[in-house]
């Protein structure tokens, strides 16, 4: 076995896994708070990538990478809050299926909106991160992968601390446990839901930006397959559980990359989805999910 190749594939896995994990967190946080599978999340990711594309191409002075990322994330967060206020808020008490259908509608709407604004052809993402790889002995690691992996892990640690240690994080956990009780305790539910959408959307946008830089293109359906795989990652880890989404993201990234590298790229999707079915057969609530008894 070629050790060097194996290490490279591990790095590739960490890279795709980081992107899936970032996007999966958005699915899982929103589900945790309002029990909605937000299918438009993949489209927020796509818009995040377009925001970065617009900022990087329209402003002539080469802005530093972090500025581009922060502005795009802020715009995506705003977009996430708006979709919730416009499309989902009224449906909070409606049957879950109505909200789900609305989310699918929102997803298609945003996709078509992007197509209308930007056209269907892929746009070439400018190289905002140097394309000079960093050498570790014989192993060349693209700089964009270094950024993706390190920033994703850093942000996930910050997010965990935020949810565990801060007042807002505590409120978020309270709302996810019992909305009515949290409201009685004086928690501003609308504010917390908006905050959840904002954080999830910003992380999704970050995933989209890394995705479009690493793979050099932005296009209106960019969020569809990646969004679906990130959703699988969230279910895999136990939907509603942030740590689970991270583990799920890296697991899916690992399975996919290793299949492409050692079996055949023809099989990668089949194996990813097959593993999902197996996990759900033996542990229906996902790896870290808890079996919550429905109240009758």
């Amino acid at each position: 076995m070629d050790v060097e190749l194996f290490i490279k594939q591990i790095i590739n896995s960490l890279n795709t896994g980081s992107i899936y994990a970032l996007v999966a967190i958005g699915y899982t946080m929103v589900y945790g708070i309002i029990r909605l599978i937000n299918f438009a999340h993949g489209e927020i990711m796509m818009f995040g990538a377009y925001f970065a594309f617009i900022i990087a191409t329209s402003i002539p002075v080469g802005l530093p990478f972090f500025v581009i990322v922060l502005v795009s994330m802020a715009l995506a967060a705003l977009m996430g809050i708006l979709t919730e206020k416009i499309a989902y808020k009224k449906l909070r008490t409606a049957p879950r299926i109505s909200a789900l259908i609305t989310a699918i509608g929102m997803s298609l709407f945003l996709q078509n909106l992007a197509q209308l604004i930007f056209g269907a052809n892929p746009k070439v993402m400018p190289q905002v991160i140097s394309n000079e790889p960093i050498m570790f002995g014989n192993i060349a690691v693209p700089q964009v992968m270094m950024y993706t992996i390190s920033m994703s892990i850093g942000i996930m640690i910050l997010l965990t601390l935020f949810v565990k240690k801060t007042r807002a994080g505590k409120a978020m956990r309270a709302v996810s446990q019992d909305k009515e009780a949290a409201m009685l305790m004086g928690i501003n539910i609308n504010g917390i839901i908006s905050l959840t959408f904002a954080i999830g959307s910003a992380l999704g946008a970050l995933g989209g930006i890394f995705y479009s830089i690493a793979y050099s293109q932005v296009y209106p359906t960019l969020g569809v397959m990646t969004g679906l795989k990130a959703f699988i990652a969230a279910v895999f880890g136990g939907i509603g559980n942030i740590g689970g989404a991270m583990i799920g993201g890296y697991a899916i990234g690992f399975i996919e990359t290793m299949t492409k590298g050692y079996i055949s790229s023809r099989w990668s999707d089949a194996i990813v989805f097959g593993v999902l079915i197996l996990i759900l057969l033996f542990k229906p609530s996902g790896i870290l999910g808890k079996n919550v008894k429905e109240k009758v």
Binding site: L5, N12, Y211, Q217, L222, M225, T226, S265
Partner: peptide, 20 residues
């Protein structure tokens, strides 16, 4: 002999196989 699909964007693992 390696392949990719119409919807693929991530070619990093097949490219590493070629490089190796």
């Amino acid at each position: 002999t390696l392949t990719f699909g119409a919807g693929d964007d991530d070619y990093s693992s097949v490219l590493d196989v070629i490089a190796a």
